[in-house]
Structure formats: structure tokens, C-alpha cells
Amino acid sequence: MPTLTPQVVSINGLAPTYGAAVASTKVPCGERTFLHVKNAAGSSMTVTLTATAQVRGSTVADTIVTVPATTGDKMIGPLPAELFAGAADGLCSVTYSSTTSVTVAAVRI
């Protein structure tokens, strides 16, 4: 599972580089980190962030975001470690219901 490296926004601006989405990726957690997902396919798709947190012994639900078809564009985040950090690697696990015509960038402000 590849890990997306967050691109840092600066005072001079950032033109993010987007890569083709794959079925699942990982992203470093952070209060200033988010995903920018673009969907150019003819159908909507979902992005799922796997929650790892527990409250009083109950697992917190995964975060599921629907990205609309054709010109769908969603900013998803922040990605706080207390909600999404995996026990083994501290990274947020992300899955995509479809990867056809879907691009993604990890961005940190």
C-alpha cells in the first residue's frame, strides 16, 4: 500500500501534483493534513478513512466521503492521529471505492 507524501502549502502558493488513485493508500496523520480527491468518472465514488479510535471501549466509525461524478472535487481532513493513526505505523489508511479517473493529492498547510 503506497504512502502519499503531503505537499506543503507555502506563502508563495502551491500547485499540487495529483496522482492516480489506487485501491488503498496511507497518509501521514496531522491536524494540518488533508486529502484533495478529484473524480472525473461518470459515477460518484466514496473515500473511506479507517478510524482507529475508541471511546469507552467502542470503536469510532470510519469516515466515508462521497465524491460526486464528472467534476467531483472534495477536500477531506484534517486527519488527526487520535482518530486515524494505525497502531503499527501511525498512518491513516484510505480506500477508494473506484479509482477510474480519480486523482488524489495529500496537502499540508
Rank of each mutant, 00 (worst) to 15 (best):
T66H: 01
A23C: 00
S101C: 07
S58Q: 11
E31D: 08
T99I: 15
V22A: 14
S43G: 05
L91C: 14
M45R: 10
I109E: 11
A81Q: 12
T17E: 02
A23W: 04
T59V: 10
V55H: 00
S101K: 15
T100R: 12
K38F: 01
A69L: 02
F34C: 15
V107P: 09
V104Q: 10
N39C: 02
S43Q: 11
T48I: 11
D73R: 08
S24I: 02
S58V: 07
S44M: 06
V37A: 02
I76C: 07
V65G: 11
A53H: 05
K26F: 00
E31Y: 00
P68D: 10
K38M: 03
T48L: 12
L49I: 15
C29T: 09
G57T: 10
V104L: 04
T63S: 13
S101E: 13
T33H: 02
L83K: 09
L79S: 08
P28V: 00
V65D: 04
E31K: 00
L79K: 09
A21E: 06
A85Y: 13
A88F: 13
V65H: 05
V107N: 10
P68G: 07
F84G: 14
L79A: 08
V22K: 11
A106V: 13
Q54I: 01
T46M: 00
T17Y: 05
I109D: 06
K26M: 01
R108K: 04
V27F: 01
P78R: 07
S93N: 13
S43N: 11
L91M: 15
G42H: 04
T25V: 08
A81T: 14
M75S: 08
Y18P: 06
K26T: 06
P16H: 10
I64L: 08
A69K: 05
F84S: 15
T50L: 08
F34E: 13
C92M: 15
S43I: 03
M75E: 06
T103L: 04
A51I: 13
P80S: 14
V102I: 12
C92W: 12
T33N: 06
R108I: 08
M75D: 07
C29K: 01
V22G: 09
R32V: 00
T100A: 15
A61V: 04
